[in-house]
Simulated assay, not measured.
Amino acid sequence: MISLHDPAGRPGLLASVASLAELNRAYAVGADILDLKDPSAGALGAWAPQALTEAVKRWRMWPHPRPLLSATIGDHPLDPAILCAATARTAATGVPLVKIGFSRTGEDAAALPACLDALAPLARETRLIAVLFADEGPATDLVPLVAGAGFHGVMLDTARKDGRRLTDHLNVSALTTFVAAARLHGLLTGLAGSLRLTDIPVLAPLRPDYLGFRGALCTGSRTGALDPAALAAVRRDVAEVARSRENA
């Protein structure tokens, strides 16, 4: 399993980027995971395949050590055939981490096991990350299912981008339980969902492998342009939390 922790226990920083230009900016600032996502197309809006292919090409040209690269497959219903096709299409571009959202609302909840079973063969070939949504309730019970399907990681995010943050939906106790369960099953573990600077000292001590940001990195809303200064501020605060814990 990939671990993004440094010796001081700092979680990695995932920065969602909406274009090739933003990819370069986030790389220059030093994000640990560059997440290819189109925020104008939903919670997990996908890049076009041609742009994904170009991003992977650029990523492969960067010297080691280089950040990880992830990409979302888009917002889709929990239909095994649809999810498998979108996952295979994204994986074919060569992106090393493929993120798949699993909504648990309405009839979708019953379809989740079948979707995980259908994706298991792809999980043996590509590092798949399951994205679960905190605004749909606690998700710890789904962690064993994700691990059993051979996924590489799991993360919590928010499906509805309405200004409410991850911690507005789940308290620290619930998030601690989620992270502990994911780590117990050997899964790369992330927390995201409209996070702000004030969330870093609350969430970093829970020891997720990474914290994910988009809106806090942008001018205006999450669909605005990525601001390198804002990204640098987030990276600084994550590092400062690690230093304060080390010196405590």
Rank of each mutant, 00 (worst) to 15 (best):
I2K: 13
H5P: 06
G9I: 08
R10T: 02
L13T: 12
S16H: 06
A21F: 05
N24A: 15
A26P: 02
A26D: 04
A28H: 10
L34G: 00
L34A: 03
D35Y: 09
L36M: 10
L36Q: 12
S40F: 00
G42M: 01
G42V: 01
L44S: 06
G45K: 06
W47N: 05
A48Y: 01
M61T: 10
P65F: 12
L69N: 00
L69I: 01
S70M: 03
G74C: 02
L83M: 07
T87C: 08
T90Q: 03
T93C: 02
V95M: 09
I100S: 02
I100W: 02
G101W: 01
F102L: 14
S103H: 06
T105K: 15
A109L: 03
P113M: 08
A114F: 05
L116F: 14
A118L: 06
R127S: 06
G137R: 05
A149C: 09
A149I: 07
G150K: 13
G163F: 10
G163A: 06
N171M: 10
L175T: 14
L175I: 14
A180R: 15
A181C: 13
A182E: 00
L187R: 04
T189K: 10
G190S: 00
L191N: 09
S194L: 08
L203I: 07
P208N: 13
P208W: 13
L211A: 13
L217P: 03
G220P: 06
T223N: 09
A225C: 05
A229R: 09
R235W: 04
R236P: 07
V238I: 15
V238W: 13
A239L: 13
A239K: 08
A248I: 06
